[in-house]
Design a protein around this nucleic acid. Structure first.
Lengths: 207, 207
DNA sequence: ATTTTCAGCGTACGCGTGTACACTATTTTT
DNA sequence: AAAAATAGTGTACACGCGTACGCTGAAAAT
């Protein structure tokens, strides 16, 4: 039961995942990636792919999971920074922009598959974003004493704004990051202000 | 110079455009559309396609232009409604949601190509969205006496939120439209509130 | 009336694709 | 020690793709 076989299999599986991730770029999306390309990049015969995934879709969903994981690590990182003092909004945006710089292709994967043609992919990406939103929602509710509903609306709007800024960041060059970040920070302040003002006046929200 | 020939050509060109638009759906994106499929749907031999477009890309950019046009018509429609009285935010959101209901596939095209693999497509979509944002910006600046910068930030954030809601709308069923619209309206109020509060205190915006 | 232009067609080619199938070599189970 | 399981290979197939090329018939220009 040494598992020398299972071990090797796991290793090859990783090679496939890494090969797929490695081929993603601004010009190449996951959906335009072929089974053969991935297998070749991983140093495998095309048919060997099937020993690990039934489908390119199955591989893709695995990638989305990885991306979600990376995103959650990012949040932990942001929280650590915040605990050491500093503006929540500012630190969050800066951390997110760093994420884009270092993981552009992973972020592109999420953006693209969110509006892609596979319902399973869309659901997977939306699930990851929902986790992301929910954690922010809890934080806001606790830190700012907000009503559950107001906190959710703020968290949801903030995540939308930040993701959109991330999307913009992918297409501009590094010298403009600062300006984009500042604009985003200010927009998040608008939202935070609005949320605070409307808090306790939830009666204004029609059902 | 009756142009009976040019006339027929224009007609065929439209058939190609309509064929492409007609094939778009939640499961089929423009980038997964082949020249042959489009030509076939338009009742043409594959090679005849080249008499009208050099490329599928060229057709695609034409579609994006059409989509932008539709979007601008939408705005005109919204303005008309507003002039007849009613909350700006509410009417805008409702108009946009109606647009999604009636033009889901066109909106999908914009969403998808905005994060797609072709720089030309991304630029074209972003240009359309910029027009959209700028018109809203002008309106806000005039109607609410806002600083140019605050107005821009508000317009930009608002468009982002509305587009994101539109994206969500594509994947839910009609019975939940109302709730989504209400959430979006409330989020836009947050932003409007924040913009008003920060107006005249632009010094807070670091450069 | 003659010539030129050109939208649309049909044939044909090479290419990359997903995957079925039979085979091998090694690990794991019996 | 023998048998079973299985990760990986190589060959082979049918398919849809973009597009090069030559042709045709009708419209437009001469």
């Amino acid at each position: 039961m040494s598992g020398i076989r299972a071990q090797q299999k796991e290793k090859t599986r990783r090679q496939l995942i890494d090969a797929a991730l490695g081929q993603l770029s601004s010009e190449k999306s996951f959906s335009s990636l072929s089974l053969r390309e991935v297998a070749k990049e991983a140093g495998l015969a095309p048919t060997s792919f099937y020993r690990h995934f039934t489908d390119m879709d199955e591989l893709g969903l695995t990638l989305v999971d990885e991306a979600g994981l990376t995103l959650r690590q990012l949040m932990r990182q942001a929280r650590q920074r915040i605990e050491k003092g500093g503006s929540v909004i500012q630190i969050s945006v800066i951390t997110f922009m760093e994420f884009i710089e270092n993981n552009g292709n992973i972020f592109r994967l999420l953006l693209r598959e969110r509006s892609g043609t596979s319902p399973a992919f869309r659901a997977a990406v939306n699930r990851e974003i929902r986790y992301f939103t929910m954690e922010l929602c809890d934080y806001l509710q606790q830190a700012n004493q907000l009503d559950a509903e107001v906190a959710y609306l703020q968290a949801n709007a903030a995540v939308t704004i930040v993701f959109s800024a991330g999307s913009d960041a992918l297409d501009i060059d590094a010298k403009d990051y600062g300006q984009l970040a500042n604009q985003t920070i200010q927009q998040l302040r608008f939202i935070a202000k609005g949320a605070t003002e409307f808090n306790g006046r939830v009666d204004l929200l029609k059902r």
